[in-house]
């Protein structure tokens, strides 16, 4: 009986200590989510109460060429970014494991020395500067024709992905899971006469598979929602060449203050991301621990 009472006290204590988090997560987590779907069907004038307008915002978006343009841009960015840079940390991490422990330590510390993200974006923008930037400086030294970089609608998107390609590095999470692979697996494989590629293909990659699946999912979601970097580097230009969905959303909702249309666009993006997530989960039938 006493144990029973004690257990009940524990459960009550559990509720007390999770209450602050419960309230915050309700007000700023779930409530806005529900509200967001409601606002997508409303019109918010500058003054006065909101009116229900049904599917008007969605009809307007469907006949808006910019809407399609920004989605194409976002898909293009995601494909470019994942195609060019997603596999790099995997390779670098596998190679890094071949170094001596001491070297790994030093390299890891140097690699993960952080820079505030905005400073990183701004120095890259300065590299790309067509008049005084480093890249055109190098081209000039080499005697090659100068480029417009971010001001050229043809390569602007590539320029946004380039930093992740050039500043290649390992991934903390890959290193963690690589370290958890027992080394006798490799030793016995070697005794069996396995080649390097066979070891990577049959031991390393299968072990990394769940992590790769999870990070691929996060990369897709993250890239579809990209904002900071293109917004600061190009502001969506030249023209609309690098306007991603979230930049377009930001301009609609917070520059033109059309909250209803903005919420409708966010809702469409949400649905698109969910579809991609479902497709990806189907492909990698893995039990992913979130």
């Amino acid at each position: 009986m006493a144990e029973r009472r004690e257990l009940r006290a524990v459960r009550r204590w559990a509720w007390y200590i999770c209450l602050p988090g419960f309230i915050v997560n309700f007000i700023f987590g779930w409530y806005p989510l529900a509200l967001g779907i409601v606002v997508a069907f409303q019109d918010w004038p500058i003054i006065g109460p909101a009116k229900f307008v049904g599917l008007t915002h969605f009809y307007n978006l469907a006949s808006d060429p910019l809407f399609y343009k920004t989605f194409v841009n976002t898909f293009y960015y995601t494909a470019l970014s994942i195609g060019l840079t997603f596999f790099i940390p995997i390779i670098v991490s596998i190679l890094l494991m071949e170094m001596e422990k001491r070297v790994i330590r030093i390299m890891m510390i140097l690699w993960f020395i952080p820079m505030a993200s905005m400073s990183g974006i701004i120095v890259w923008k300065w590299f790309y500067n067509p008049y005084y930037g480093l890249f055109n400086g190098i081209l000039k030294i080499l005697g090659l024709p100068l480029s417009q970089w971010l001001n050229s609608s043809r390569i602007a998107m590539l320029c946004l992905v380039l930093p992740a390609l050039i500043m290649f590095g390992p991934g903390l999470i890959y290193i963690a899971s690589l370290q958890s692979i027992p080394s006798d697996l490799y030793e016995s494989a070697e005794l069996e006469g396995a080649s390097m590629w066979q070891k990577i293909w049959h031991i390393t990659l299968p072990r990394l598979r769940p992590v790769i699946a999870m990070l691929l999912l996060l990369a897709i979601i993250g890239n579809m929602q990209v904002f900071d970097q293109p917004y600061v580097m190009t502001g969506g230009g030249p023209g609309y060449a690098t306007t991603t969905v979230v930049i377009y959303f930001y301009n609609i909702a917070f520059n033109s203050l059309r909250f209803g249309k903005g919420a409708a666009l966010a809702f469409v993006l949400f649905c698109v991301i969910m579809v991609l997530v479902i497709i990806q989960r189907k492909y990698f039938r893995e039990n992913i621990d979130i």
Partner: peptide, 23 residues
């Protein structure tokens, strides 16, 4: 409670930007 506390992480953040602002 696990779904309640973790579920918000899985949903793209933009959808709650406008309502959070209004809130």
């Amino acid at each position: 409670l696990f779904i309640f506390f973790i579920g918000t992480m899985l949903i793209p953040y933009q959808i709650s930007l406008v309502p959070s602002y209004l809130l």
